[in-house]
């Protein structure tokens, strides 16, 4: 049964076990509170509890995955070797979306909300549009991006007083 399902147990199992181990190693670094009202149940107790729970649960699915894999191979299934490049290519829109989003928030502080939003919305719209439709998307995408950047900045910065970063546009006294 569960054809190749085992992968969805093994990989998360490994990653989460490592994460749980890392987390547990950080716990002793927490400064314990020794002041008034301190009890033996300190600020490390619950992190140990959650960290330990995560470690056990991820080992559980890891072991389950290994058993499933054995069963699968015993039933004559082949361990398939999906090439990494293929996987990346299959998910290129997702990867591109994450990259553009990361750049968007990373540079928002220095470049400013308006410019980064303009660029980000434009790029993200294109990423979410099939290649063959790009030509007729450029203009509407640009208009959407410009409108979103301008209107949202005005409404939230000036009407609702949210501290959206002005960035390089500060030279215009915005």
């Amino acid at each position: 049964m569960s054809n190749k399902q085992y992968k969805l147990d093994i990989i998360p199992g490994i990653v989460l076990s490592l994460f749980a181990a890392f987390y547990l190693l950080q716990v002793p670094k927490i400064v314990e509170f020794k002041g008034l009202g301190s009890t033996p149940l300190t600020n490390r107790f619950v992190p140990y509890l959650w960290g330990g729970a995560l470690l056990l649960l991820s080992l559980w699915i890891l072991v389950r995955g290994i058993i499933r894999r054995k069963k699968y191979l015993a039933e004559g299934g082949r361990a398939d070797k999906n090439s990494f490049a293929e996987a990346v290519s299959d998910k290129r829109e997702v990867i591109a979306s994450f990259i553009s989003l990361t750049i968007y928030v990373a540079l928002m502080g220095s470049v400013g909300f308006v410019i980064m939003t303009l660029i980000y919305v434009f790029v993200q719209i294109l990423i979410l549009t099939p290649r063959e439709n790009w030509k007729k998307t450029y203009l509407p995408a640009l208009i959407t991006a410009a409108a979103a950047a301008g209107i949202l900045f005005y409404v939230f910065r000036y009407l609702l007083n949210v501290l959206l970063p002005v960035g390089v546009l500060s030279v215009f006294g915005l």
Binding site: L101, Y120, V121, I125, L128, T129, P140, A145
Partner: peptide, 10 residues
């Protein structure tokens, strides 16, 4: 959706 979602992210 390709126009709506980016604006929602913003």
């Amino acid at each position: 959706k390709n126009f709506l979602l980016p604006v929602i992210v913003v």
